[in-house]
Amino acid sequence: MAKASTGTLYRGNEGMWSWVAHRVTGVGIFFFLLVHVLDTALVRVSPEAYNAVIGTYKTPVMAFGEIALVAAIAFHAFNGLRVILVDFSKSGPKNQKKLFWGVMIIWLIIMLAFIPRQMMHTFGG
């Protein structure tokens, strides 16, 4: 792996992997969004059609899909705010690694809160 002395501080570290994850989650969220607007559009077809498709979101399998969706959104949102701080804050670039770990901690807290909540909604209790 390249070292700082050879001219890159970026490759292979937090900066690069957060960039990769930002792209992957962004593409995933975009394709979900296309599907989600189409399924919501069924409210203009009939209440039955909409309830049928939204019913598939309530199954245990899709409950895990929603956890994956929230995980992708939470990472993309807070890493996006990190990118903004790196771009606009004077001390942002210097602290980009700390900011990355800050993003991971906030992401973990959100997931630790959402996963049991989602389990409760899906399986009762």
């Binding site: 409210v43 209440p47 309830n51 309530k58 409950a63 929603e66 989602q118 909604h121 899906t122």
Partner: peptide, 8 residues
Amino acid sequence: EGVQAIDF
């Protein structure tokens, strides 16, 4: 009730 409450 989260996603379970969503319907028309």
